[in-house]
């Protein structure tokens, strides 16, 4: 099937977590395939794009939103979170405090983002800096995930490009499942995705989704 007839989806995925855990590094690694130890701290809103040819019929445009790790603006954070379909919460294996903050970030997400039909936002946890401290995975993580309906977590390394693609694929699967389960294909969330991205590709949209 030629590209012209592919269904295009747009997923806004948030990357949150405490300051300095490597959110920007993960995003750059995933979207641009690069790593630098010298990223500046994120201030304000920023996102990177990644295009995935998911299957022969579907192209997924992922917007990875880099959310500043230092709590700053109550209201603005909810603007940054708006219309997200999933989130990755990152913590730093070398700093135990950042794992304890995962619960706080999860609560913030659950509080501010709700999907149509009230489903909870799909969330995964990334235990980053696995290149230096892979053996320091907090033992409570399994239980934490179970308790909070989080289906997966990964030890990642943006530096060594470990598990980032796998983790992001998992997020995409969860978003797709979530939408399928809820029979959401005709509802707001996907309409939003299409509306946000495809009005320049009206032909494709008419052919595929109607």
């Amino acid at each position: 099937m030629s590209d012209l007839f592919k269904k295009e989806l747009l997923f806004k995925i948030l990357v949150v977590g405490d300051f300095g855990v490597g959110k920007t590094s993960i995003i750059k690694r995933y979207a641009e395939g690069t790593f630098s130890p010298k990223y500046k701290m994120t201030i304000g809103a920023d996102f990177a794009l990644k295009q995935l040819d998911w299957d022969s019929e579907t192209r997924i445009n992922i917007q990875l939103w880099d959310i500043a790790g230092h709590e700053r603006f109550g209201y603005l954070t909810s603007v940054y979170y708006r219309y997200a379909v999933a989130a990755a919460i990152v913590f730093d294996l070398t700093r135990p405090d950042t794992f304890f903050a995962v619960a706080k970030w999860l609560a913030d997400l659950r509080d501010k983002v709700s999907l149509p039909v009230g489903r909870p936002l799909p969330v995964i946890i990334l235990a980053n800096k696995g290149d230096v401290a892979a053996n320091k995975v907090p033992p409570q993580i399994e239980e934490f995930c179970k308790k909070n309906h989080i289906t997966s977590w990964y030890v990642t390394s943006a530096k060594e490009n470990r598990n980032i693609d796998e983790a992001m694929n998992r997020v995409v699967v969860e978003v797709l499942e979530n939408q399928r389960n809820n029979n959401l294909y005709n509802s707001d969330s996907v309409m939003l995705a299409e509306e946000m991205h495809t009005d320049k590709h009206n032909n494709g949209q008419l052919c595929c989704s109607r």
Binding site: I43, G44, A45, V79
Partner: peptide, 15 residues
């Protein structure tokens, strides 16, 4: 939608 939030200039102002 949401364009009036002026997301693009938050960093201009903050820094």
């Amino acid at each position: 939608r949401d364009a009036a939030e002026l997301l693009f200039c938050h960093r201009w102002i903050l820094l």
